[in-house]
C-alpha cells in the first residue's frame, strides 16, 4: 500500500500496465517530455522510452485514429486527450469507428483502445476546461465509460480498463486529482467493471454520484446524519456497464433517491438512473426522485460555484426527499 493522490494513482496504474505488457503504449499531447499537463504521465517516457510514450502532433483525431490502428493490429494503446473538452476532433473516430469495429465486423475486429481524459469543473477552467460530457459516450453503444473517484479506484479501474477487450472511456475527475489522497495497493490491482461502491451505508435515503461529486455528496451525507437522516451513498464507478443490482437494492431498502452529477440536467446520466429505478423499483419509492445537477447552460467561468452542485444543494434536496411520503 502507498498513500497517493488520484493523479499519482493513474500514473502508477499506467506504469504497472506498461511493465506487465510490452504491447501497452501511450499516445497524447505533451505526455512525454512534459509528463502531461496534469503530470499523469510524469516519468513514464524516461522509464519506457519515446516509442512507448509518444508525444504526438496536435490532433486528437490523429491520436485516436492512430490508436485504433494500433489496437486493430493487436497493441494496447492508451490515448490521452488533454482535456475532455478537446475530444471533439476525435469524436468521429470514437463514435463512428472505435465503438463499432467489433460490431460492424461481426466480431472479427475487436478494437481495444483506452481513451483517458481529465474532465469536470471546479478548477476555474471556464467553458472549455470544465465540461462533464460523459452522457455522450454512455449513449454510444460499444463504449465502456469509467469514472474513478478515489486513488485506489483510479488505479484498479485503469488496470482493468487496459486489460479489457473493448474500448473504454476513462474519465478522470481533475478537480480531485490532488485534493484527495488514499492508500493504493502496490503492483497489479484490479477492480471489476460494473460494481458500484457503497461509499457509506444508510437506511433513510440513497445518494448516487460519481467522480468529483463524491466529495460534496459524502459531506452532505455527514451533515444529514447530524439531522438524524442516514444516507446510503453509492459511487457508480462505471456508468457503462452499470451496476443496477446495487442501485436497486439500495433504493428498495431506503425508498428515497437523490442523484448527483455536475453535467447539465437535460439528458444527463441521472435521467438514465431515474428511469431504471422507475422501471424496476417504483413501488419501493416513498418520494419522487430528485436530481441535483449542473444547469442546462454551457459551463460558466466566473459563476462556476453556483453552477456546480454543492454540499448545500445536496443536503437541501435530500431533506426535501426525506420529508416527503
Amino acid at each position: 500500500m502507498t498513500e497517493l493522490t488520484l493523479v499519482q494513482a493513474v500514473n502508477r496504474g499506467l506504469a504497472e500496465a506498461m511493465r506487465q505488457d510490452p504491447d501497452v503504449l501511450l499516445l497524447g499531447e505533451d505526455i512525454g517530455t512534459n509528463g502531461g499537463v496534469f503530470r499523469a504521465t510524469e516519468g513514464l517516457q524516461k522509464e519506457f522510452g519515446a516509442e512507448r510514450v509518444i508525444d504526438t502532433p496536435l490532433s486528437e483525431c490523429g491520436i485516436v485514429g492512430t490508436a485504433i490502428g494500433m489496437a486493430l493490429y493487436g497493441l494496447k494503446p492508451v490515448a490521452e486527450i488533454q482535456f475532455l473538452d478537446f475530444i471533439y476532433p476525435a469524436f468521429d473516430q470514437i463514435v463512428s469507428e472505435l465503438s463499432k469495429f467489433r460490431y460492424r465486423s461481426g466480431g472479427q475486429y475487436p478494437c481495444h483502445v483506452v481513451v483517458r481524459a481529465p474532465y469536470g469543473g471546479g478548477i476555474r477552467g471556464g467553458l472549455y476546461h470544465s465540461q462533464s460530457t460523459e452522457a455522450f459516450f454512455c449513449h454510444t453503444a460499444g463504449l465502456k465509460v469509467v469514472i474513478p473517484s478515489t486513488p485506489a479506484d483510479a488505479k484498479g479501474l485503469l488496470l482493468t480498463a487496459i486489460h479489457d477487450e473493448d474500448p473504454v472511456m476513462f474519465l478522470e475527475p481533475k478537480r480531485i486529482y490532488r485534493s484527495i489522497t488514499g492508500e493504493v495497493p502496490d503492483g497489479d490491482y484490479r477492480i471489476p467493471f460494473g460494481k458500484a461502491r457503497v461509499a457509506r451505508e444508510g437506511t433513510d435515503l440513497t445518494l448516487v454520484a460519481y467522480g468529483a461529486m463524491m466529495v460534496p455528496t459524502l459531506a452532505a451525507a455527514e451533515r444529514l446524519a447530524q439531522d438524524g437522516l442516514q444516507a446510503e451513498v453509492l459511487d457508480l464507478r462505471t456508468l457503462v456497464p452499470l451496476d443496477e443490482a446495487t442501485l436497486l437494492a439500495s433504493v428498495e431498502k431506503t425508498g428515497r433517491l437523490v442523484i448527483v452529477h455536475e453535467a447539465a440536467r437535460t439528458a444527463g446520466f441521472g435521467a438514465e438512473i431515474a428511469a431504471i429505478v422507475a422501471e424496476k423499483a417504483l413501488y419501493s419509492l416513498k418520494a419522487p426522485i430528485v436530481r441535483v445537477t449542473g444547469y442546462d447552460t454551457p459551463f460558466p467561468y466566473a459563476l462556476e460555484h453556483l453552477y456546480l452542485p454543492s454540499e448545500e444543494r445536496i443536503v437541501e434536496a435530500a431533506r426535501g426527499v426525506g420529508r416527503t411520503g
Binding site: 473538452d85 471556464g126 467553458l127 472549455y128 476546461h129 466566473a302
Partner: peptide, 23 residues
C-alpha cells in the same frame, strides 16, 4: 458576462470575434 476564462474574449464593436479554447 464572466462566461469565459481570461484571454478568451471578443468584442463585436471592434470586429474581434469571440475566441474559444479548442484549437
Amino acid at each position: 458576462k464572466g462566461r469565459q476564462m481570461p484571454n478568451h474574449y471578443g468584442y463585436r464593436a471592434q470586429n474581434f470575434v469571440v475566441a474559444s479554447s479548442p484549437l
